[in-house]
């Protein structure tokens, strides 16, 4: 049994059902042909059908020894990825408040020093170097307008 396929199959069945439910509230037909609900409805149906096949097929799959090893859940990996992504979200939220350049510096220091476990000084150097480059190219040369903070950058 291939667990990842079973799970994604089940999830997609649910998602397909959601699409079908939403689509059935839309008009199925319009003057001489399909209406706004036509395409989503059939997407939902096909999604459910194919996801069912995927989930069923996953039961007949046998892992090789190598795959079994590779599959062992590595929580560190998940934490690193989740951490990066959440930090990325924080950067976006902060960009609106303190400007993109500064929030990007903070994010990069976190990424390099915390996620990638380089030294803090490496993190700061990298962050400042990239931020300066960005400012030079995008703001100064191209004249792009990035979100700015109260300090004007």
């Amino acid at each position: 049994m291939k667990r990842s396929d079973l799970l994604s199959g089940l999830f997609l069945i649910g998602f397909g059902l959601f699409i079908i439910r939403e689509a059935s509230a839309m008009k199925y037909s319009y003057v001489h042909g399909p209406g706004p609900g036509f395409l989503p409805f059939w997407i939902g149906v096909l999604l459910v059908a194919l996801a069912l096949i995927l989930a069923t097929m996953s039961a007949f799959y046998f892992y090789s020894e190598k795959e079994r090893k590779a599959n062992r859940a590595d929580w560190w990996k998940a934490i690193r990825v989740a951490g990066t992504w959440v930090a990325f979200l924080f950067m976006i939220a902060l960009a609106d408040k303190i400007g993109f350049i500064l929030s990007f510096v903070i994010f990069t220091v976190f990424l390099v020093s915390a996620v990638d476990r380089r030294s803090l000084s490496t993190g700061i150097t990298v962050a400042l170097a990239i931020a300066f480059g960005f400012y030079l190219i995008f703001v100064y040369a191209f004249g792009l307008r990035l979100p700015v903070g109260p300090w004007g950058f």
Partner: peptide, 18 residues
């Protein structure tokens, strides 16, 4: 890569925002 990845993420954000 610890230099490259922030650059990629940053450029993606700037490019999309532009």
């Amino acid at each position: 890569n610890y230099f490259l990845y922030p650059v990629i993420l940053g450029i993606s954000v700037v490019g999309v925002y532009a």
